[in-house]
Design a protein around this nucleic acid. Structure first.
Length: 279
DNA sequence: CAACCCACCTGACTGC
DNA sequence: TGCAGTCAGGTGGGTT
């Protein structure tokens, strides 16, 4: 799935198409993705104008005007993709794709969700309850906003025995960093991903914060990482895959020290790192 | 609490 | 060609 850079890429792609347009029809082909979809609340968005497309962590928030200013909360899970078709209001709508689960019709734009594995989510919340929504409440620091720094990482890592990679991926502490970018950030900071978080020096925390910011910023600038099934809203590819230093490069030479990249697994998830230049 | 581990689901790929 | 096994970008919930 999309990690922060992919979701942000989708957000930037969707915003100019949806903002200011009125939702004229919603179709749900099933009543649940990872969780039940509140059909009546979703239908309640019809005839309202989209006022903003925002992102919090890996969630997209489609804001609407009108009473209580509701927002659709969209998560893409592991395999979710959003597409936007441009068409005329009177045009016949396209056939449903395989694994297309819902679409929001904005007249001249059609927003479609395709998610084969159905780990994604769709919910609706009023704006004054949004920050306390079950899925959003308790989310950690945004890595590209004020407050993220070496000092922050230092603070959350003290006395912690979990691995540095697990720390970076714990959404209650820090959001947006998933399995790809956690490995990539550790590589950039020259820190072994399996080190205990509590063992990080202040200098390493600083380097790691810089690395997280840099890798996410660069990935956004490249339109995200797409290999396998992720693409942006217009099926345009992201080009960060070729910038990856360790992810899915097991056995290949490190671009910094030429040692072979290693892969280890924690649970069912792979971690990639270089024993030659990460300490 | 903290730190694991698993399930949820489909599809792509590998090796026999 | 077919089939079984493995793995994939997330994350809430259960167990230790």
């Amino acid at each position: 799935m999309p990690e922060l850079p992919e979701v942000e890429t989708v957000r930037r792609g969707a915003e100019p198409h949806l903002c200011g347009r009125t939702l004229c029809k919603v179709e749900l082909r099933r009543d649940d993705l990872r969780w039940p979809i509140p059909r009546k609340l979703v239908m309640g968005l019809v005839n309202r104008r989209c006022t903003a497309v925002e992102r919090r962590s890996k969630y997209l928030l489609l804001r609407f005007d009108g009473p209580a200013a509701p927002a659709a909360i969209v998560h893409l899970g592991m395999s979710g993709r959003l597409f936007i078709d441009s068409l005329q209001t009177h045009d016949v709508r396209p056939e449903w794709r395989l694994h297309e689960h819902w679409r929001m019709d904005f007249g001249e734009r059609l927003l479609r969700l395709v998610d084969p594995r159905r780990f994604g989510a769709l919910d609706v919340s009023n704006s004054d309850a949004l920050s306390e929504h079950k899925l959003l409440r308790g989310l950690g620091q945004e890595p590209l906003e004020q407050g993220f720094s070496g000092g922050f990482l230092q603070k959350i890592s003290r006395q912690r025995k979990l691995s540095v990679k697990s720390l970076l991926m714990d959404g209650r502490l820090l959001v947006g960093v998933g399995n790809i970018y956690a490995s990539e950030a550790c590589f950039r900071a020259s820190v072994r991903p399996r080190r205990s978080a509590g063992s990080l020096t202040f200098a390493e925390c600083d380097a790691l914060a810089d690395a997280v910011r840099a890798v996410l910023t660069s990935a956004i600038a490249h339109g995200g990482t797409s290999f396998r099934d992720y693409v942006g809203v217009h099926e345009d590819q992201g080009f960060f895959a070729r910038e990856l230093q360790v992810y899915e490069r097991e056995g290949e030479p490190c671009r910094r020290c030429n040692a072979r990249i290693k892969r280890t697994t924690d649970g069912a998830r792979s971690t990639y790192w270089c024993a030659g230049c990460q300490r």
